[in-house]
C-alpha cells in the first residue's frame, strides 16, 4: 500500500470524534450526578451506572488525545484535546471533592438502634412551646387517634 503522502494527495486530518464525545459525556456525567443520581433516595445499583458514566468519557478522551498526538496526520484535535482533558480533570476533581465533602460525616454507630428505647427529650417548637417526645407519641392526630409512630428527622439545619 503506497504512503498517502507519497501519492501527493493532500488529505485533511479527520475530525477527532472520540475527543468531542468524551468531553460532552463528562459534562453529562457531572450534571446527571449532581441533578439526578444523588437525589435518588437510598442509592443501590445506580452508583455503578453513574461510575460507568464517569469512566467512559475519560477512556474516550485518553484514546482521542492519544490518536491526535501519535497520528496528527490522520486526526485533528491536539489543542482541543488538551483543553477538553484539562476541563475534564477540573470537573472530575470537583465531583470527587463534592463526594468527599458530603460523605465526611461522623458515623452513627453509637446512635440509638432498632429495638432500643429512644431517649426522651423536651425541645421548643417554632412557637417556642416546649414539646416532649412522650407527648408527640401520645397526642392525637387529625383523625383523633394517637400516631402509630413518630418519625424523628435530625437534619443539618441552617436553612
Amino acid at each position: 500500500m503506497p504512503d498517502i503522502a507519497a501519492t501527493g494527495l493532500a488529505v485533511q486530518p479527520r475530525r477527532n470524534g472520540l475527543l468531542w464525545a468524551g468531553g460532552l459525556l463528562i459534562i453529562v456525567a457531572v450534571l446527571s450526578n449532581a441533578l439526578f443520581f444523588v437525589r435518588m433516595p437510598g442509592q443501590r445499583l445506580l452508583p455503578w451506572l453513574n461510575l460507568v458514566l464517569f469512566v467512559t468519557p475519560v477512556v474516550l478522551l485518553v484514546l482521542g488525545l492519544r490518536r491526535a498526538i501519535t497520528r496528527p496526520e490522520v486526526y485533528r484535535g491536539k489543542t482541543a484535546g488538551w483543553i477538553l482533558a484539562g476541563l475534564s480533570v477540573f470537573l472530575l476533581a470537583f465531583a470527587v471533592f463534592a463526594l468527599y465533602a458530603s460523605r465526611n460525616i461522623p458515623d452513627a454507630s453509637r446512635a440509638p438502634k432498632v429495638g432500643e428505647q429512644a431517649p426522651d427529650f423536651v425541645l421548643p417548637d417554632t412557637s417556642s412551646k416546649s414539646i416532649r417526645l412522650h407527648d408527640l407519641l401520645s397526642a392525637p392526630m387529625d383523625n383523633g387517634a394517637p400516631p402509630k409512630a413518630v418519625l424523628l428527622v435530625f437534619y443539618r439545619g441552617y436553612w
Partner: peptide, 29 residues
C-alpha cells in the same frame, strides 16, 4: 450540628427503624 438521621419510634418509645445516610446528599427511602 446534627449528622442526618431518621428514627421511627413506636408509641412505646421503642426505635423500630433507623436510617443513617453516608452521604448528606442521599435521602432516606
Amino acid at each position: 450540628i446534627a449528622r442526618p438521621a431518621e428514627f421511627l419510634v413506636d408509641s412505646g418509645g421503642v426505635v423500630r427503624w433507623v436510617n443513617f445516610t453516608e452521604d448528606i446528599r442521599v435521602r432516606a427511602r
